[in-house]
């Protein structure tokens, strides 16, 4: 049951850790662009993790009640809502990150920084709420069992791989030259926003709230979603081995909203660098 612990904990932690790394890289970029001045603080990170874990626990405790709602598809509806909101907040972040175009009036107004912080907190809390509740569900069933040690050590290995990937992604993104770093961050933000939208569609399809659409492709034989690389690809760019056309559409629309934001123009179009 060791591998079980690895797979479940890894896929949940990895997604939350990569999300957090991406946001922190953005934050690092913003502060660096403001010539070392702290445009945004990082204290909110700890608070949002604590709040996220708390919410995840509350959600997990009420799992059976939620699950019975809407004729037993309550979980899908709740999770679809969480995914949609995450996608929405990620798009908001893309539009709020101060870009070349509003660098001028930006410095004096704190509103943008505050809104940006609120959006980042929301994204982190939602990510931990989503992923944490599953770990709580899994962990709750494990505690009393004989194989608790093997599952626990598996969980630790999964958590270790997830957290370390997040740490390395953060240092890789922040270690890049400013322009390249902004491009990578913006692209990842677009992919993550697309992924969240696509997941929301998938969950609503599963609950039969939106219509079925045929499978776009099947690449399970090429790259299995269960493999470590598959999990990494899922967490990083939202890889799915057999998505439906609607999911693919939602993915592109979500990503597009990020790619037409001012920060994206700063990253790809403007020749002169912002700082």
């Amino acid at each position: 049951m060791f591998i079980n612990g690895v797979v479940i904990v890894l896929q949940e932690i990895l997604e939350a850790a990569l999300m957090l790394s991406l946001l922190l890289s953005f934050l690092h970029y913003i502060n660096r662009a403001y010539a070392g001045q702290t445009y945004m603080r990082r204290t909110w990170v700890t608070y949002s993790i604590v709040i996220g874990v708390l919410f995840a626990w509350i959600y997990s405790v009420n799992f059976s009640r939620v699950s019975e709602a809407f004729d037993y598809v309550g979980l899908e509806i709740t999770n679809a809502t969480i995914h949609s909101l995450s996608s929405l907040f990620l798009i908001c972040i893309a539009w709020l990150v101060p870009s070349r175009e509003h660098a001028g009036f930006q410095l004096n107004s704190g509103h943008r920084a505050q809104l940006l912080t609120v959006c980042m907190i929301a994204v982190v809390v939602l990510a931990i709420l989503r992923e944490g509740s599953e770990i709580f569900q899994f962990g709750g069933g494990v505690l009393g069992r004989d194989e608790a040690t093997s599952i626990l050590s598996g969980g630790l290995i999964g958590a270790g791989i997830g957290v370390c990937t997040g740490v390395l992604l953060y240092y890789a993104l922040t270690g890049l030259p400013a322009r390249l770093s902004l491009r990578a961050c913006t692209l990842l933000l677009a992919l993550t926003a697309g992924n969240m939208a696509s997941q929301a569609v998938l969950l609503l399809t599963q609950a039969d709230w939106i219509s079925y659409s045929s499978t776009a492709w099947s690449s399970e034989s090429l790259l299995s979603e269960a493999s470590v690389v598959g999990q990494l690809a899922y967490a990083l760019i939202g890889y799915e081995s057999s998505p439906s056309w609607l999911q693919v559409g939602a993915y592109f629309i979500g990503g597009l909203f990020v790619l037409v934001s001012p920060i994206s123009r700063t990253a790809w179009v403007n020749k002169a660098h912002w700082d």
Partner: peptide, 20 residues
């Protein structure tokens, strides 16, 4: 952070491969 992260990553992934 980076050295420990790389060590953990390689060790754990190797352990998983070994396990499987």
């Amino acid at each position: 952070a980076t050295i420990v992260a790389i060590l953990i990553l390689f060790n754990f992934v190797a352990a998983l491969q070994g396990y499987q």
